[in-house]
């Protein structure tokens, strides 16, 4: 298991897809400087508004899209030149290969999350914020956003293994991501839509009664439920895939 993960990391490390991750802080900084918000009328921590507006676009749009691109990228070199048959004729179980790819993906997404908040911090520094950096809030939305993408990544990995082309899984991902923009305005629908969960988990204006910005019940049922569905679906599909 560890050896497969090491091999996956090795292949990834030597590829240009590394740079996909670096787009995250760039997007973050860009979002930070393009969003116009004024703090002067409010008596709240100046980081809050910055976080609110930056998290919005990032969690709604960029986060689920970039994880999809990463998932495709991580299967791309197997699709390209007979990599699947070479990899799967080695003494490995398909289950472990699937898990190794998934683990690598979620670790990369966690790194992305950290980079995003580094970008938020840089934006604040440049803008000359003097209020204390709200560490607790940042942690909550960083980890919360990450947890909420776990089911999405499982489905994206499934689709990336299923389709040889780069475009097909990407298109599916876009189609599933876009409705989020409409759905987030309705509390009723957004709580059930898996693609809306990263946004809700990173929406720092949300309920704070529970550990995250989303109630535990919703976390366990919607995020947990869709995770099990997508992960098991992808796992079983890969078991039977003929290569």
């Amino acid at each position: 298991m560890v050896s497969i993960l090491q091999s996956e990391w090795f292949k990834f490390r030597h590829s240009k897809i590394m740079f996909i991750i670096l787009t995250v802080p760039i997007i973050g900084i860009f979002l930070g400087f393009t969003s116009r918000f004024s703090n002067e009328d409010f008596e709240i921590n100046e980081w809050y508004l910055s976080l609110l507006s930056m998290n919005l676009t990032y969690a709604l749009l960029f986060l689920p899209l970039i994880t999809g691109v990463l998932a495709s990228a991580i299967c791309r070199y197997e699709h390209q030149a007979g990599g699947w048959k070479q990899l799967l004729a080695l003494p490995v179980t398909r289950g472990r290969v699937f898990i190794a790819k998934y683990v690598l993906l979620i670790v990369l997404v966690l790194v992305m999350q950290v980079l995003f908040f580094v970008a938020v911090y840089i934006v604040g520094m440049i803008k000359g914020f003097t209020d204390p950096f709200p560490m607790v809030i940042v942690w909550k939305s960083l980890v919360g956003g990450w947890v909420a993408t776990l089911p999405l990544i499982a489905l994206q990995l499934w689709m990336s293994i299923l389709f040889k082309s780069f475009a097909a899984p990407f298109a599916i991902n876009v189609i599933l991501t876009l409705p989020t923009i409409l759905v987030v305005n309705s509390e009723r629908f957004s709580s059930f839509y898996p693609w809306a969960q990263p946004f809700l988990m990173m929406y720092i204006g949300g309920e704070t009664g529970d550990t995250f910005y989303v109630p535990w019940v919703q976390l366990l049922t919607v995020v947990g439920g869709s995770f099990i569905l997508f992960f098991v679906g992808g796992y079983l599909y890969f078991q039977r895939k003929a290569v």
């Binding site: 050896s3 497969i4 090491q6 091999s7 090795f10 292949k11 030597h14 590829s15 240009k16 070199y77 390209q80 030149a81 007979g82 990599g83 048959k85 070479q86 080695l90 003494p91 490995v92």
Partner: peptide, 18 residues
């Protein structure tokens, strides 16, 4: 089968790790 983005050595290294 091969990984186009890797060198010959790296291709074998990726397999060797497993």
């Amino acid at each position: 089968s091969y990984y186009p983005h890797l060198t010959a050595y790296e291709n074998l290294e990726a397999l060797r790790k497993i």
